[in-house]
Amino acid sequence: MKAFARTPLNLEKMKTPQGQVYLIPERCKGCGLCIEFCPREVLRESAAINAKGYHFPEIAPGKETSCVHCQFCTMICPEFAIYTEEATG
């Protein structure tokens, strides 16, 4: 058998994680990075604005269960304004 660089995943056993987005709206500066770089396009700019007038993100309609807790939004946000955790249950 060909030696794989890593052992292949067994798709039956794998369960795609389900993420829960947490937001600190007051820290958001509306840079749009989390919206742009979310691989599942879960986020969009909300109509609401924070005290500084920045449009913080919200969950795009129909994307309520799309987040897979990949944490890219958490890591790309320069303001420490958003993060995700694995949704329980």
Binding site: K29, L33, I59
Partner: peptide, 28 residues
Amino acid sequence: MTQAIVVDSHPLDQILRADRMPHIFCPG
């Protein structure tokens, strides 16, 4: 998940001086 849950602290606040957030860096 239905909506993003609004909170007032970030997991990294433990290593940040959260009392000085938001920081001064420009948007983007």
